[in-house]
Amino acid sequence: MKKLTSVLLCALALLALPAARAGTVLVAAASDLAYCIDALGAAFGKQVPGARVKVSLGSSGNIFAQVRRGAPFEVFMSADMAYPARLAAEGGADAATLIPYAVGRIALWSPDARFGHGSGLRVLLDARVKRIAIANPDVAPYGRAAREALRAQGLWDAVQAKLVVGENIAQTAQFVESGNAQFGILSMSTLSGSRLKGTGSHYLIPDAGLAPIEQGAIVTTRGKANPLAARFVRFLRSPAARAILLGNGFALPAPAPAHG
């Protein structure tokens, strides 16, 4: 009888293993990830059977502010390294988990066939260009990158009156799609992995002399209680995740160093 009981207990324990691995991780992600975050979540679920990734999208600055105010996010995928590093310095995240997972690129995009990109960003000085959309430089790293690129070419002051500012990169793209702006400075991930792929024309803005848009992920203080949070962050450096990111317009940071 005891042997039978032992066998039954072992069988029940084995049946319970998939349920023990199952769970949900709450991820707050920068808007430039909108078109690949589902694929990342699905790939993570294949590596960790039963795991679900629940995502909220927004500008990195707004997510940072929400986490500071107690939002229940367990992983923060920022469009820069500064916001997660600052969150860790303030005690809102685990500094030991901070990793770079992608490098963003920016491009000038327009659906308007009247304009070419032979002159690069200087096309924005054309008198026919009335509105130019960029993300908010105060909260969106891609907005800061757009401002930096325009300043580097001496155009920032000249185009100030034409700017339409989006809360994040997704809203910035919507401004151009809707005709409220003729040009937008967008992330290549937005142009590569969305319905915009192959539409209009774009000019990849050279990154020479500009700070790289290195994007970072971190486990929040709340996320330390969920083992899936740290596991998801580590997954972002895996070959499967890197392939998804590369296929969606991102460049990649150096691979994680091997251990052992």
Score class of each variant (00 low, 15 high):
G104N: 06
R131N: 12
L191H: 02
D126L: 08
S238M: 04
V164I: 13
V176I: 10
K224T: 14
L15Q: 12
G118M: 08
L4W: 13
S178L: 15
C10D: 13
P84T: 05
T172L: 10
T5L: 15
V139M: 07
W156H: 14
G23Y: 03
T199D: 11
G184D: 01
F235C: 00
V165G: 11
Y83C: 11
M1W: 10
A30D: 15
A22F: 02
P257M: 00
G41W: 06
Q153M: 14
G193L: 05
G61W: 03
A158N: 12
V159P: 08
A88K: 07
W156D: 15
G45K: 01
S187K: 07
A11W: 09
G116Y: 03
A173M: 11
R128K: 11
V233H: 04
L228H: 05
Q66C: 10
A254L: 03
I134G: 06
N136K: 02
E90Q: 14
A28D: 09
I37F: 10
A251G: 09
P257Y: 00
P141M: 04
C36Q: 11
A22L: 01
L33P: 12
L204F: 14
A225W: 05
M81K: 09
I99F: 07
F183A: 05
N226A: 02
L98I: 13
F73L: 08
I213G: 13
P84W: 04
L57N: 01
L108W: 03
G260E: 00
A217C: 11
F64T: 08
A71M: 03
S6H: 15
G23M: 02
G200P: 05
A161T: 15
N248W: 03
P18C: 00
G23T: 01
G58S: 07
L26M: 11
V48C: 01
P253F: 04
R68K: 11
F183E: 01
R231Y: 01
Q171V: 15
V25W: 04
A107N: 03
A146P: 05
V75M: 03
V165W: 14
R68D: 06
L163F: 09
L125E: 12
R195K: 13
S31W: 09
N168L: 09
L150G: 10
A243Q: 10
G118E: 14
L252E: 01
V123D: 05
E214D: 15
A102C: 09
N226L: 04
L8S: 11
G247R: 05
A95L: 12
A42H: 09
M81A: 12
V164W: 10
A225T: 12
D112T: 04
T190F: 09
I37M: 12
V233S: 10
P239R: 04
Y142M: 09
R128D: 10
V233Q: 06
A95S: 14
P206K: 07
D138M: 07
L228I: 06
G200Y: 06
L57I: 03
